[in-house]
Amino acid sequence: MTSRTPLSPLPFSPGTGPAIIVPILAPTPAEAADRARAAAAAAGVDVLEWRIDEHVAGGLLDAGVREAAGTPEVDGSAELRTAYDEIAAPGVPVLVTVRSQTEGGHCPDDRYAEAVEAAIALRPAAVDVEMGREEAGRLLAAASDAGVSTVVSAHAWEATPTAQELDAAFAVMAGSGADVVKIAVTPQSTADVLTLLGATARAAESLDVPVIGIAMGELGRVSRLCGGEFGSAATFATVGEGSAPGQMTAEQVAVVRSYLPR
């Protein structure tokens, strides 16, 4: 891979082994902050991924919703900022992700761009941008202008695309201007897992951005443990509740990572 270093402080660089990203999901921002502190204290954790789509769906960015519910009207952006500051306080880089309903998350599709813009305004280490969104180009540019790294993502929830389709998707996403490219697939067989790992290896070798390739579910667990051997720059693991099927604990992944060459 011809290296183009992503905007700091994402710890994705060739030769260092896959970074361990721990998703933070919670019904309230206060609970998210508690879980973030616990995750940040766990050994081997490199990045926290704060999933805010459930908070957006619950009306965090909509003061009118809270007022109608009889709760004090608080600026949703200010509440988001307060929670983010607590989550970022331990000093572990934070990736803020808004997962739309189309991509398996909670955020209504018509609120997606607004929510990502709110995430960018926090100035985290990075934000996730779904490649399939009509607004992806604008959001990637907005993050770049703000000095925020971007992880452009795509998910195949029903199956695994062909090797040719994955190669093409990695290439298109790498050309989007994002700092990191992530593709997650759903394997139906071990052959599908090999297809994902092969495409990840080719992308890592040929593209000028770090790539993340994940096969989800029980069949795909090996990709979370050994994806770094195929060029994947990061893997997702849990401290407490996870965000996708097949995730293993950060402790398990860190142990395996320690035995593999870098």
Rank of each mutant, 00 (worst) to 15 (best):
R133A: 12
R111S: 15
D145K: 12
V185M: 03
V211M: 09
E134N: 12
L166Q: 07
D110C: 09
G177H: 01
L194N: 05
A201M: 14
A184I: 03
D179R: 13
P187Y: 12
P108Y: 09
R138M: 07
A136D: 06
V148G: 13
D110T: 13
S176L: 03
T190H: 13
W157I: 14
L140F: 06
A204Y: 02
D167I: 07
I183C: 00
R123A: 12
A178P: 11
D145G: 10
G177S: 04
A163H: 15
V185G: 01
R133C: 08
V209A: 03
T190C: 04
Q164K: 13
S149T: 11
A169F: 00
A159Y: 08
A203S: 00
R202T: 11
A125I: 11
M131H: 10
G175R: 00
S189M: 03
A171W: 02
T150G: 01
A115W: 05
E158I: 08
A113H: 04
V185D: 00
S149P: 12
A146T: 09
E114W: 11
G137S: 14
P161Q: 10
G137F: 07
A113Y: 04
Q164Y: 08
G175Y: 00
A156V: 01
S189A: 07
W157F: 15
T186P: 00
V151L: 15
G175A: 02
A142P: 10
V129M: 03
G147I: 05
V151M: 12
I120M: 10
L197F: 08
G147V: 06
A199N: 14
A199R: 15
V185R: 02
L197P: 05
